[in-house]
Simulated assay, not measured.
Amino acid sequence: MRFPSRLLLANMVFALMLWAGFFVLVVAVTVGIAVFGTLNESVWEKAVQVTRWYALFVGVALVREFLPMYIAHGQTRRQFGAQAAVTVALFAPFLSALMAVGYLLETVLYNLAGRPQALGRAHLYAEPTQVPLVLIEYLVEFLAWIVAGALVGAGFYRWQGGGLLTIPIGVGLVVLAEGAIGTELRLPFLGSLPLRVDLPQSLALTLGTGLGTFLLGLLLVWAVIRDVPLRNRLS
């Protein structure tokens, strides 16, 4: 098996198909709001918050599904760890680019309809057309969510129920990244209670915190999988 190129390509193709279907759904919702209600905010901004959970799932699957597969085909754990890091480092900006393209296409639709594309929450960018800032924000966010998912996936793969202990650490990584872009994390089971860390807002700090969170997450994942035994699928 060619790794990481095959795994990376498979994830990119799948993400692109999901994005296309998701964008069509968002457009349909947008048209419905414009016809039956008042359209004065970006629907894409609200809808893409669910993509963070997709990024989390990618991280979980990276370890739980692909670690045993590639080790069984001759990869060492060290090789898998290094190449998985490359995969995440390339896949996260790809997802970020899809988010930026979604904003640009939405801008075209809103301009044609003569509707304002206002943003409803804090961002690094003030306008959806500020593509570099859009890319940076979602890159920092996706890197954190993917490595958090990989950490939790590794924890449950190695310790089964004991993997619950990795969840607060994964949440901490995500909260740190969200703080770097000036927003907060809201989890369904915590109701309206936000998880937030307030950091000074600067582009350099955002990039540094994002990179630091990513590297810290990789180190934690490696600490879990470096000598993890392979498990039988039925165990």
Rank of each mutant, 00 (worst) to 15 (best):
L124Y: 07
L139D: 01
V147G: 11
R78N: 02
G170A: 14
L18V: 09
S235A: 11
D227F: 07
E184N: 08
V131F: 00
R233L: 12
R64H: 10
V175R: 02
Q117G: 03
T129V: 14
S96Q: 08
V221F: 05
A10Q: 12
E45P: 04
T87I: 01
G149W: 05
G21M: 06
L203F: 06
A177Q: 02
G179W: 06
A82N: 08
V101Q: 01
A61M: 14
A10N: 13
F57D: 01
L16I: 06
V171G: 14
T38L: 09
V131E: 01
L203Y: 06
T129P: 09
R115C: 02
P4L: 06
N40S: 10
V175G: 10
S202H: 09
P4M: 06
L62K: 02
L230I: 12
G179A: 05
V24N: 01
V152S: 13
A55E: 11
G153M: 10
H123C: 05
L139Y: 07
T107S: 14
V140F: 04
G21Q: 08
H73A: 10
V147E: 01
A85P: 00
E184F: 07
W159H: 14
L104N: 11
N11L: 14
Q79W: 07
E127Q: 13
G210N: 03
V197G: 04
P194L: 11
G182I: 04
G208Y: 03
Y54M: 04
S5H: 10
F57A: 15
L7W: 04
V224L: 14
G32D: 05
